[in-house]
Amino acid sequence: MKKIWLLLISTLFIVLAGCTDSGQAKKEETVTLKVGAASVPHAEILEYLADDLAKEGVKLNISILKDAVQTNQQTADGELDFNYFQHIPFLEQTNKESNLDLVSVKGIHIEPFGVYSKTINDIKDLPQNAKVAVPNDVVNFSRALLLFKNNNLIELDDAKKNDYTVEDITKNEKNIQFIGVDSLLLVRSLDDVDASAINTNYALEGGYNPHEDALIIEGSDSPYVNIIATTKEKQEDAAIQKVVKWLTSEKACKFFEDQYKGAVVPVF
């Protein structure tokens, strides 16, 4: 009888241990990814898809972008697993300037770039010697000048194709003064200038509807596609690929269309 009880206790212990091991295995299957993202729309769409990702064993720990170059550096150093806030020209410029080797995993959406003002309602009313705030990074400064060129407000040197600076302006009848400002401060700069060229994510954060409030805006054919960026080593990471799968799903597409009404355009 004593042997039977010992056998039963041993069997129960094995079963319980198995249950414990199984529970630990399930817990270990969940992968937490550290992400650097702009708050709108990048973090919003990631948070919207969080439950779907959790069902596939992926949890996101999202840090809201405070400094673009620093976020890329943190991704390169492994402090972040990937980031989602930038387009390829900006990534390439940061790689070059900071000696990084980050790569694009997938293009997700376009945010058409626009010009806003608190003092005028039509770009034709931009005054002589107008002060216009534009992003102070090389890529988006050039992008802003191109937007003004494409709307016949200035002319640029035909010998160049990108990385335009004020020195490349060949015609500027209104003598527009382009002032470089940190992208995070462009909405705030509207109190001090005649107009500001603002990335759509920051315009949305500032309460602006790009297609209603922008004086001029890029078309949906903009080459500045926002991407998932990471290191070459993590480019094929299974958990990151699950994030990409959901970001390019029909559910994500509908969220972009319903939430942003054309201000954010999915490219998948």
Rank of each mutant, 00 (worst) to 15 (best):
D77K: 09
D77V: 06
E79A: 14
E79P: 14
E79T: 13
L80M: 15
L80T: 11
L80S: 09
F82A: 02
F82E: 07
Y84V: 04
Y84D: 03
F85T: 00
F85K: 03
F85V: 04
F85C: 09
Q86A: 11
Q86C: 10
H87G: 15
P89Y: 00
F90G: 03
F90D: 06
L91Y: 10
L91T: 10
L91N: 04
E92S: 08
N95R: 05
E97F: 12
S98Q: 15
S98F: 13
S98E: 15
N99L: 13
N99G: 07
N99R: 08
N99C: 11
N99V: 12
D101A: 14
L102E: 01
L102C: 02
L102N: 02
V103H: 03
V103C: 01
S104M: 11
V105S: 01
V105C: 06
K106S: 11
G107S: 07
H109V: 06
I110L: 06
E111T: 09
E111R: 04
P112G: 10
P112S: 09
P112I: 04
P112Y: 05
P112T: 10
F113W: 08
G114L: 03
V115W: 06
Y116C: 06
S117V: 03
S117E: 09
K118S: 06
K118P: 13
K118M: 06
T119K: 15
T119N: 11
I120S: 01
D122W: 13
D125K: 15
L126D: 01
P127Q: 00
Q128L: 13
Q128S: 07
Q128V: 02
N129C: 08
N129A: 02
N129Q: 08
A130D: 00
A130I: 05
K131H: 14
